[in-house]
């Protein structure tokens, strides 16, 4: 038995990925999860408008982080800010009593704001926009589409690519008269098409089963989903280039998937996280897809409101996909060299 235990430890010591999952991952998860798992929102970005704005701003509870007080702004301005996601709450003093517009797409923020205004009695009337019943599924379904695409993009794609390496056919491809670009695009295109089909099915089912409203432009949503797919497929290819077996690919994919689930803001609000943890969340592609999906589904937001997540996702797609293609191409590189030499000869 002693020999068996010793052998197992020796093997584990050389399996760095499993060691990382055993030792480092629990510590990282505990730390991040501990800070991120917080449904309580302490500070809500708020603007106050209308003739009584200054007085209301001065008396607002501490929960509301008053960013702008504009006595000249109108109700239309307030609704535009809300649709553009420039703020979570607008208190409009052009009405009597003042109206508090709350962004229902930010579920936990909206719940906190609604409760705070409720404690103020009749002083403020509350109008929850985009998700008046604060229905959890309305907020979750658009975000879940991103999670499903992430799952398909990273895990399924990396497994499919590693299979080629594991069965030795990648070597065969490397010495066939195929351009590296043909191999890469040929390998990824089916996953892109299948994931696009999945996206369509999940979106339609989400709208049909959970009655989630789709208020925005479907083509704008399709564009965002397409860019996001490039990012997650690129991550899948990157994982495959760093894995020799399908088990290794799954390990790595899970390590990439977990932070996206916890820190992208679709379960725990980013506003409720400490700055450093939220900053990690801001580096994850799912965070920006969630912004796009919830914005288009619920707020009916257009590109003028969502340009930033689109730009960030496009940047990520270019970076990740280029890195993935270069690393995958490296596996096929000797043949390219050989081809060049043969041509020169």
């Amino acid at each position: 038995m002693k020999a068996m235990i010793l052998k197992e430890f020796r093997e584990l010591r050389r399996d760095r990925r499993t060691m990382a999952m055993l030792i480092i991952l629990p510590i990282v998860l505990l730390t991040i999860f501990g800070y991120a798992a917080n449904f309580t929102v302490d500070s809500i970005p708020t603007r106050v408008i209308g003739p009584g704005a200054e007085q209301v701003a001065a008396n607002a509870p501490d929960l509301f982080d008053i960013g702008e007080v504009d006595t000249d702004a109108t109700t239309d301005d307030a609704l535009t800010w809300m649709q553009d996601n420039d703020t979570e709450v607008v208190i409009d003093t052009t009405t009597q009593p003042p109206t508090a517009y709350i962004d229902g797409a930010s579920l936990f923020t909206a719940q906190s704001a609604s409760a705070a205004f409720g404690r103020m009695g009749d002083q403020v009337q509350v109008d929850i926009l985009y998700n008046p019943d604060l229905d959890t599924s309305w907020v979750m379904v658009p975000a879940l589409i991103g999670l499903i695409l992430t799952f398909i993009g990273t895990i399924i794609t990396s497994i499919g690519l590693v299979k080629e390496r594991q069965t030795g056919t990648l070597e065969q491809l490397a010495v066939m008269p195929l351009k590296p670009a043909d191999v890469i695009v040929g390998k990824i295109a089916p996953y892109f098409l299948l994931a696009s089909f999945d996206m369509l099915v999940v979106t339609l089912l989400g709208v049909w089963i959970f009655d989630v409203p789709f208020n925005g432009n479907p083509w704008l949503f399709a564009l965002g989903a397409g860019i996001f797919l490039f990012v997650v497929l690129g991550l899948g290819v990157l994982i495959s280039t760093a894995s020799q077996t399908q088990a290794q690919a799954i390990q790595l994919a899970i390590m990439m998937l977990l932070p996206q689930i916890l820190l992208s803001g679709f379960i725990f609000p980013l506003d409720a996280m400490p700055t450093a943890i939220a900053a990690i969340g801001r580096c994850l592609p799912l965070t920006y897809f969630v912004e796009i999906a919830q914005g288009i589904f619920l707020r009916g937001a257009g590109i003028e409101a969502l340009w930033l997540p689109y730009v960030v996702l496009t940047g990520m797609a270019l970076f990740v996909f280029t890195a993935a293609v270069l690393r995958f191409r490296r596996d096929l590189a000797p043949s390219a060299h050989h081809r060049a030499k043969a041509k020169a000869a």
């Binding site: 030795g168 065969q172 066939m176 008269p177």
Partner: peptide
């Protein structure tokens, strides 16, 4: 050139 090579790797290919 690769177009004129036939290769059968150890793992059958």
């Amino acid at each position: 050139s690769l177009e004129r090579i036939g290769f059968m790797p150890t793992a059958a290919g």
